[in-house]
Simulated assay, not measured.
Amino acid sequence: MKVLIIEDELAASDNLAYLLQSIDRNIEVIAVLDSVKASVDFFSKPHEAELVFMDIHLADGISFEIFERTSIDVPVIFTTAYNQYALKAFKFNSIDYLLKPIDKDELADALQQFKIQNSEKSIDDRQVKGLLDLIQTERKNYKTTFLVGLRDQLIPLKTDNIAYFRIDTGIVKAITSDNKSYTVDEKLEDIEKELNPENFYRANRQFIIHREAVVNLKAYFNGKLIVEVTPVCDERIVVSKAKASEFKEWMEN
C-alpha cells in the first residue's frame, strides 16, 4: 500500500511512518508534505497514493483548504489533537480520524477498516462543506463574556482576560490575568463546553486553564505533569498521565 502523509511536524510524521512500517512492512510512505500548497501541487498531478493521513493544521493554513483547491480522489484519515469542534464535524460527516498522539492499536484498526471497506471511497464535496460549516458555526458560538459576581453585582468579564477557572471550596472562580478573582455561577463542566478548546484546556477536575497563562510544565511522578501558571496559583495543578501527551500536543498547536 502506498501512503501519503500530510503533516508539518517532523517528529509526528516520523512517528507515524514508523508505526505504519511496524504494522505492515508492505506499506510504503511515498511522500511527506507539510503545507497546503505542497499538497495542492501533489494532487494536481498524477500520483500513486492509495491512502492519505492528513493533519488539520499545516504550516500555511488549515488542511480543509486543500479540498477547495484541488480534487482528492483517495481515502483520507485525519490526524488531530483533541479538538471538540473538529471531532464533532468528523463524526457528523462520517469521516475517519485518529487522535494524536497516535496509538498503534488504533492505527492498526483504521488500516484494517480501510482494507475492509471500499478502498476507493474518498471524501466528497458534501462532506467537506459539512466540515467547514460545522467548524465555522462552533467557532462563532464560543462564549466571549461571562457575567461574574462582584459583591452584590454582576459584571461582564471578557473570556480573553481569564487566565484560568478553578474550583475553590466548592465554588467556581475565574482568575484574571491581573490576578483578580470572580465567582462564576456555573459548573466547571458547563463552562468547559462554552470555551474555545484552542485556547482553554480542562487540566483536571478542578482547573480549566488558558494557554497564555501557562508558564512551564514540570515532570511529576508516574508520568504526570505539573503546570505552572501566571498568576501563580496556591494549589498545584496536576495533569494525569493519561492526559499528559494530549496536553503537550495541545500546547504545541
Rank of each mutant, 00 (worst) to 15 (best):
L19D: 08
Q127R: 15
E50Y: 03
Q136P: 04
N118M: 12
M54W: 00
V227P: 13
L87E: 10
R126Q: 14
D125V: 15
S71M: 11
A213K: 08
V32N: 07
T80S: 09
A242Y: 03
N161W: 02
A59H: 10
D125H: 09
F64H: 10
I5T: 05
I116C: 11
A219N: 10
T176L: 08
L58C: 11
S35H: 05
Q136S: 10
F92W: 08
A174M: 09
P156V: 02
T144H: 06
L20R: 00
R25L: 13
H57Y: 10
V148Q: 01
D105E: 14
S245M: 06
A244E: 00
L134D: 09
N161L: 08
R166H: 05
K193G: 06
K91I: 14
L132E: 11
F207L: 05
D234L: 08
L19S: 09
L157N: 07
F165N: 06
T145N: 09
E7F: 03
F64A: 03
K158T: 06
V128A: 02
D168M: 06
D124V: 11
V32I: 13
N141I: 00
L20F: 04
N204G: 10
T145F: 05
D96I: 00
V52F: 02
N26Q: 15
R205V: 00
